[in-house]
């Protein structure tokens, strides 16, 4: 019999610490498969976030570094500028990228750093106990918005990808969801495209946002959580390519 699916070598053969049904481990697998398919395992450096995925370096068998909360794009800037032949990616959650690290990601995109950012958006702060995140959708119940998020009190969900797509320094911004086999395959294509852009030396930042499940703090079963992404989350965070200027000519003065 032919093997149709098996664990890719870059994904370490170990049990993860994630809750049952968590989207993080799906995202890890997609990144690991992309790295193997593009054969860049030897020259890839990843940056782990602070958040649930803080132990990402235990699961991805590439060089990884752990940096201060939200500062991954700043560290990635230094790494890419000093090692232009290396492939640098940062893996950031919504607490990391959309809350404490908003300044870093906006300025990294603004400067057009040639890095790849994988942004996991699960609309909640998972590691600290399910508090409201900037990306929490209106009406969503969390530990700190027990009546549901109310725009009058807590403001509106932050759509970071739309924000970054406006900046000329970002060349590729796409939002995908990890809400079913078809969407997962689309997400993998997007991640691969983002890495390919960096490999080709494209002048700018590539970012893939992944809507991911947090069954524990959404207080839903894993299957219901995937449905919640499709039914509720995609209304606030519409899927699709927000920007793709991969053909943009190189500008030098």
């Amino acid at each position: 019999m032919k093997t149709v699916f098996t664990r890719t070598p870059t994904l370490k053969d170990c049990l993860t610490h994630y809750c049952p049904g968590c989207g993080h481990s799906i995202a890890h697998r997609l990144i690991a498969e992309t790295i193997d398919e593009l054969d860049i395992r030897g020259r890839t450096i990843g940056i782990a976030p602070v958040g649930c995925a803080v132990l990402a370096y235990n699961y991805l068998d590439v060089d990884m570094i752990e940096v201060a909360h939200g500062r991954a794009p700043a560290v990635a800037t230094g790494m890419k500028r000093t090692n232009p032949d290396k492939i640098i990616f940062s893996y950031q959650g919504d607490g990391d990228l959309a809350a404490i690290g908003t300044g870093e990601i906006i300025h990294a995109a603004h400067r057009g750093e040639q890095i790849t950012v994988i942004f996991i958006n699960n609309a909640v702060f998972g590691m600290t106990g399910g508090q409201m995140a900037p990306t929490t959708v209106l009406g969503q119940t969390t530990a700190t918005t027990q009546q549901g998020r109310d725009a009058a009190n807590e403001g509106y969900p932050l759509q970071v990808s739309e924000l970054l797509a406006l900046l000329p320094g970002a060349i590729y911004v796409e939002r995908c969801a990890l809400s079913g086999p078809a969407q997962i395959q689309k997400a993998k294509k997007a991640i691969k495209h983002a890495f390919e852009l960096q490999i080709s030396g494209a002048q700018g930042l590539s970012l893939v946002e992944l809507l991911s499940t947090c069954p524990t703090y959404w207080r839903l079963s894993p299957v219901k959580a995937m449905e919640w992404i499709e039914n509720e989350m995609t209304k606030v965070f519409p899927l699709g390519k927000l920007k793709d200027e991969s053909q943009r000519p190189r500008i030098s003065v």
Binding site: M1, K2, F5, T6, G21, S25, P181
Partner: peptide
């Protein structure tokens, strides 16, 4: 052997084989 289960499995614990 459609592998949908393996694609969605978060823990990557499923291996899929198919008759050629």
């Amino acid at each position: 052997g459609c592998a949908l289960c393996a694609i969605i499995c978060p823990e990557v614990v499923i291996e899929v084989f198919r008759e050629e």
